[in-house]
């Protein structure tokens, strides 16, 4: 039997985990691990490239996305547990000259 691929959750507050494995496809199972050695299995939603992230719990629109125990952006869509998280459903809140422009107009 092939070994389960690992998704690393670096901080207890994190709602995403990073997968360091090639060939992670939609529907595959991965094991989320934290620094304390806790493990849980999740089914991946979407194809996830090496070093990219999945949600470890459901994340709602406008909710903060947390990695390293800190905000790395906010969700722009409803995100399911196990779903691929990247620029298509995460928005940066910094260096956003475009948002200020909209406010001014």
């Amino acid at each position: 039997m092939e070994e389960l691929k690992i998704a690393l959750r670096v901080n207890d507050l994190d709602n995403v985990a990073t997968i360091f494995a090639n060939g992670i496809k939609d529907g595959m199972e991965v094991e989320i691990r934290d620094k304390k050695g806790n493990k849980e299995t999740v089914t991946v939603i979407g194809d996830v490239p090496y070093g990219h992230k999945i949600a470890v719990k459901d994340i709602h629109v406008k909710e903060q996305i947390i990695k390293y125990g800190e905000e790395i952006g906010v969700a722009t869509h409803e995100i399911k547990r196990g779903e691929y998280v990247h620029v298509h459903n995460l928005d940066s809140m910094r260096g956003r000259g475009d948002l200020e422009k909209e406010t001014v107009q």
Binding site: K53, K67, I72, G73, L90, M93, R94
Partner: peptide, 8 residues
């Protein structure tokens, strides 16, 4: 490479 934002 998987970095989604400047914050990350």
């Amino acid at each position: 490479g998987g970095l989604s934002s400047i914050e990350e």
